[in-house]
């Protein structure tokens, strides 16, 4: 085994007469190099999440991890190209600073506390129901309004259409009218 490795050692290959600056110098790792996207288990066709040009992205996943995001050459919008932000998309979705746990800060608290996702969802639902009741306006200026001004929402413009649709639908049914978006600011 060691002999195999040694025989591939660039110096020995050079001594055997191969060009020291070409093939003789190649390590076995170099010989095995291939673009990692070839090993991807799946490729998802996606769209860049930064500006609104809507550049096509190909998202390569290997062993449950994103291994590369690059432009989709089929796209008539972007022809496979990406700007620096779009090119940083892999880092956006894989960087260690991403938050992955629910955090809770109690009133007047000085630090975060961990919280179970299901518990958090129940607590939030309780607060919506309670605040809605407490701040319900049936009439305003003598007119029927059926609403609450006690609950408001501000969304970013990287929310999907489907998400915005459920947001508007749910809040409207709840009577919460202060529903706003980055599109305003």
């Amino acid at each position: 085994m060691a002999g195999g490795r040694i025989s591939r050692w660039p110096l020995l290959r050079q001594l055997r007469g191969e060009d020291g600056r070409r093939d003789a110098a190649r390590s076995s790792r170099t010989d095995a190099l291939r673009p990692r996207v070839e090993r991807a288990d799946t490729v998802a066709r996606s769209v860049c999440p930064f500006c609104a040009v809507g550049c096509g992205q190909l998202v390569y996943v290997e062993n449950g991890r994103v291994t590369q995001i690059e432009g989709d050459p089929d796209s008539p919008i972007s022809r496979g190209r990406l700007c620096p932000k779009g090119s940083a998309s892999k880092q956006l979705v894989t960087h260690p600073g991403r938050a992955t746990k629910v955090l809770y800060r109690r009133p007047y608290g000085t630090d975060w506390e961990p919280l179970d996702l299901e518990t958090a969802m129940d607590m939030i639902a309780d607060r919506v129901v309670r605040t809605r009741r407490e701040t319900w306006q049936q009439t305003f200026d003598g007119k029927e309004v059926r609403r609450t001004l006690g609950i408001a929402h501000l969304g970013g413009a990287t929310l999907d259409n489907e998400e915005n649709y459920l947001i508007k639908k749910l809040y409207t049914a709840l009577g919460a009218i202060q529903v706003e978006n980055q599109a305003r600011v």
Partner: peptide, 25 residues
């Protein structure tokens, strides 16, 4: 210690971890 706001932070899925549509410019 005088701020009474109760804060819930919930981490979100990224654009590659969900499906849906964007409407471009």
């Amino acid at each position: 210690e005088e701020i009474g706001t109760e804060v819930f932070f919930l981490p979100a899925a990224s654009h590659v971890e969900k499906e849906g549509t964007f409407t471009n410019t």
